[in-house]
């Protein structure tokens, strides 16, 4: 198959999931779109090699998260990358979604790596090992980042205590998320049905 054609086919099947994860990482639609585009540009750059290896998803995910951190480091927040603001393709449906806005604001107050580890662990349902691979760090770092991120959410946004667990860091539900990872290893980036 022509590389461009196979790339476009891959992108059409993944762009929605990538966009959702990017939105959680950035907390901003424009930035999320930039992040997805930057990621896919880099994927297109090496597309033939990724296809020959058989599994582009791991590279795509790793690129998405590293680009997210890079964007944050470059202080790209607040830079308008578009001459025209993108049209809102969906209405703002936060009304009725319990805590969605609060979650977005709380995520924005986390460090980018803490945000990333929460998205990988609780949105994409990756194991600690997979999250570590995506972030290019050790499993113990993923564990500590997760613990710190949740603790920080509790401190910064007490109103989310109900969501993230109000007790100690070693909350049983969090512990279950860590320990029972082997059964929750599939990436939601590749599973549109999780929406």
């Amino acid at each position: 198959m022509d590389p461009e054609e196979s790339f476009r086919e891959y992108v059409s099947g993944r762009v929605a999931a990538l966009s959702r994860a990017a939105y959680l990482l950035t907390g901003d639609r424009h930035l999320a779109e930039d992040l997805v585009q930057l990621t896919l540009v880099r994927v297109a750059r090496h597309w033939e090699r990724l296809v020959s290896r058989g599994d582009p998803d791991a590279y795509v995910r790793r690129t998405l998260y590293t680009q997210h951190v890079s964007m944050w480091r470059r202080r790209w927040r607040g830079v308008d990358l578009h001459a025209q603001p993108p049209e809102a393709s969906t209405p703002d449906s936060t009304a009725g979604l319990v805590g969605a806005l609060m979650v977005r604001d709380a995520l924005r107050r986390l460090a980018p790596k803490q945000r990333a580890v929460l998205v990988l662990r609780y949105f994409e349902d990756l194991t600690e090992a997979e999250a570590a691979d995506a972030l290019g760090c050790s499993v113990s770092t993923v564990k500590s980042q997760t613990r710190d991120a949740l603790a920080r959410l509790r401190t910064l946004a007490p109103e989310l205590a109900e969501l993230v667990g109000g007790s100690s860091v070693g909350d049983s539900s969090i512990g279950a998320a860590s320990a029972g990872d082997s059964s929750v290893s599939a990436s939601s980036v590749g599973r549109e049905g999780k929406r």
């Binding site: 999320a32 896919l40 969605a100 949105f123 993230v164 539900s173």
Partner: peptide
């Protein structure tokens, strides 16, 4: 409780439309 966080993240993510990717290949 983390299940609630998962749900909240999924609901928040649903608000993001797919990014435009027309030019990324070029």
């Amino acid at each position: 409780m983390s299940r609630d966080l998962r749900t909240a993240l999924a609901e928040l993510a649903d608000q993001m439309p797919p990014a435009r990717t027309d030019e990324v290949w070029r």
